[in-house]
């Protein structure tokens, strides 16, 4: 099935499920049913179900649907859980420290989930477009290798041209650039990276260099561009990995708080009377 068709189908199912839930809650409210209890229980069950996705990931060889199917269920049931939450709180801000905390944690889980969904779709594209695809774990080694190559070019420049122009520039401007990852936030946000500035400075050096040094500068430009791609890959791939370190612990907190909240509500409501 094409992705667009799948998206449309899933959205239609989501809208239908959302409308049904809304309709049921409205109808139940009119006959004074304890809708908060029902929606709360449903929400807790849905959150537990959503959290099982992470457990499924740890069991790749168990015949429990493909992870891609789980992702689809996770995404659309996730949207549904937001509607359930709103129905549960009656579209009003909650009161009381515990309830506010619970609502904030739910909001953070939902927000981090939406962020993860959007970011993983957008960043995957951007990583592919930006440059060579490199493995995350190899980036530090590749950066060190680039730095060595750049240093070798600079040494060669001094030996061959007896000029320190490029070496001076390297020591003041490029050495810090190669020494560590740069501008992670700028890369992630898609803002102008320091690459443009470095390249401009490298071009400015042409007035102080001869033709042989121009060729050496061109080699340095290649290294600088490769380093920029490594920084971009590190920032992008890093965030793609690490957003889950926010989403998953928050989910665990939500489940604990939600369970406590449910227990209290159920106890004080006197069960299903």
């Amino acid at each position: 099935m094409r992705f667009a068709r799948r998206r449309l189908l899933n959205t239609l199912v989501l809208v239908a499920a959302g409308a049904a839930a809304w309709g049921w809650v409205r109808r139940a409210d009119t006959v004074l049913q304890p809708t908060s209890l029902f929606t709360g229980l449903a929400l807790l069950a849905v959150c537990l179900g959503l959290a099982l996705f992470n457990a499924r990931k740890k069991l790749p060889f168990i015949p429990l649907l493909r992870a891609a199917t789980w992702t689809q269920i996770h995404v659309y049931v996730g949207w549904f859980s937001i509607l359930l939450f709103l129905l549960h709180v009656g579209f009003r801000p909650p009161s009381g420290v515990f309830n506010i905390t619970l609502a904030v944690v739910f909001g953070l889980v939902a927000a981090s989930g939406v962020f993860g969904l959007v970011f993983s779709r957008v960043m995957a594209f951007r990583l592919t477009l930006h440059g060579e695809n490199v493995m995350f774990e190899r980036i530090p080694a590749l950066r060190a290798q680039l730095q060595r190559e750049a240093e070798a070019i600079v040494v060669k420049s001094v030996e061959e041209t007896k000029s320190t122009t490029i070496a001076d520039f390297y020591a003041t401007r490029l050495q810090p650039y190669f020494a560590r990852p740069r501008s992670r936030l700028r890369h992630v946000l898609g803002l102008e990276s320091p690459l443009k500035g470095v390249l401009t400075d490298l071009r400015l050096l042409k007035r102080y260099t001869n033709e042989r040094e121009h060729a050496i500068l061109a080699e340095l430009v290649d290294c600088v561009e490769a380093k920029d791609n490594l920084d971009f890959q590190l920032a992008g791939q890093g965030l793609l990995k690490y957003w889950l370190f926010v989403h998953i612990p928050l989910t665990a907190s939500l489940l604990i708080l939600g369970a406590v909240h449910g227990l209290i509500a159920f106890t004080y409501a006197g069960g299903f009377r």
């Binding site: 060889f61 015949p63 493909r66 992870a67 789980w70 993983s120």
Partner: peptide, 15 residues
Amino acid sequence: QVTGPACVRACPHDA
């Protein structure tokens, strides 16, 4: 493995 290639089953993004 009963499920066939684990790599395909494990990919969460249909990639």
